[in-house]
Nucleic acid binder design. Structure first.
Lengths: 221, 221
DNA sequence: ATATAAATTTAGGTAAACCTAATTTTATAT
DNA sequence: ATATAAAATTAGGTTTACCTAAATTTATAT
């Protein structure tokens, strides 16, 4: 079964919003995410609901069916594999790959994706630390928690970001923080919830609440 | 300037037919190549003529302008680079890459293509021996001549194909003939113009006129 | 509870890229 | 030179994915 570019983008957007909010996806949220009018969304969701890719309750919102979820995860799988390729094989930076992967993710060829996966050594995560679903759409939930939850003297490992915007990624690069780095929480400012940290036991930094909320970490070890 | 998928495919098709026939490209030839009706072609060529991508003489045919030729060559460059990647890096066979490259060629990112080119070691030819235009659209003409023009006792090198269909490529693979091989013409049958040849001084084969017409060779040396 | 605001849907319309059928133009053959 | 065939164009229509404006439904606030 072949899916139009638009259909793929709708399913991906529905998946993304659902993952963030955990509830039915509203017409307006979808319109915002896709950059189209609410009227267009209202039209289009009826079409994909008729194809059983989503279930749609009028005026309430939409949610992916198993079939729709499977397709969405396959696109996400392709997107993340291409991002790994762009960074690991072509030398792009983590803030340069999203737009290119948005195009590559729609290329249709199961053999291509299987060979790409092999070529990359079957990576588990993409350059932003996001987990890559397998060909069946299975994947674990990311175990990282925001650094914001940590207390003084905690020692953790930076494994992902909750915010994927290029400005945020560039901010981290500029501050010499990269995935895999060890972070020690030196002290938390009570007054504004900003964090004084040490990266890899070497570099001291002071990050705002907005930053530490978006750094996903696990216990070091 | 951004071009629709359709526009890119029209320009590529016009280029391809023009290279084969060396004259103005007819509506019917384009319709045949693109798999659409002549009426659709007649409509669409007006649109791209208005954009100065082709020049169009009503009822006579079309030809690329410099601008249109430049775009066509850029798509061909991308197509061939992706084919090299598929074969050299992912391990696909030369008869498995065309359809995938048809999709990849439309991805838009000059940086991507520049990095891909570097990653591949700036290849001069694709897996079928076709020359890859540079980023400015410059490229030499293929110097290969059909083996069909050779006489008994000629010793030549196989460097390209005039026919790109998968059945033909698979036929050559099955017969152990690959690009770069040395071909010795042992004898030409007068009666049907079939060729008795020896590949790399080892393997003797008997190929029909239809086959040898599509094998491009240069003098061995 | 009802007025107002916000979100959603419906109605009606557009542009891109296709189609078939009819017409016109160009080429071919006697 | 003219009839016929082939090729190209025009006319009129469809589908997909969008739009704005109007109407309706749902949520919010007094």
């Amino acid at each position: 079964m072949l899916h139009s570019l638009t259909e793929e983008n709708y399913l991906k957007a529905i998946y993304k919003i659902y993952e963030k909010n955990g509830s039915m996806v509203s017409t307006s949220a979808l319109a915002e995410e896709l950059g189209v009018s609410a009227a267009s969304v209202s039209d289009f969701v009826k079409k994909i609901a008729a194809k059983k890719l989503i279930s749609y309750e009028k005026s309430k919102g939409v949610i992916l069916t198993e079939k729709g979820r499977h397709i969405a995860l396959n696109i996400i799988r392709k997107h993340r594999l291409w991002e790994v390729w762009l960074v690991n094989k072509l030398g792009f930076k983590w803030d340069e790959v999203h737009e290119i992967a948005e195009q590559l993710e729609h290329v249709v060829s199961d053999e291509l994706i299987a060979e790409l996966d092999k070529h990359l050594g079957y990576p588990k995560t993409d350059p932003h630390g996001d987990l890559i679903p397998d060909a069946q759409g299975n994947f674990a939930k990311n175990t990282g928690k925001p650094l914001h939850n940590c207390l003084a003297n905690d020692v953790v490992k930076f494994i992902g970001v909750a915010e994927h915007s290029n400005p945020f990624l560039q901010f981290l690069t500029k501050n010499n923080l990269a995935l895999g780095d060890e972070i020690t929480v030196d002290n938390v400012e009570e007054f504004d919830n900003s964090y004084h940290i040490t990266i890899n036991g070497q570099l001291q930094k002071h990050f705002s609440k907005e930053v530490v909320k978006n750094l996903l970490v696990v216990n070091a070890g």
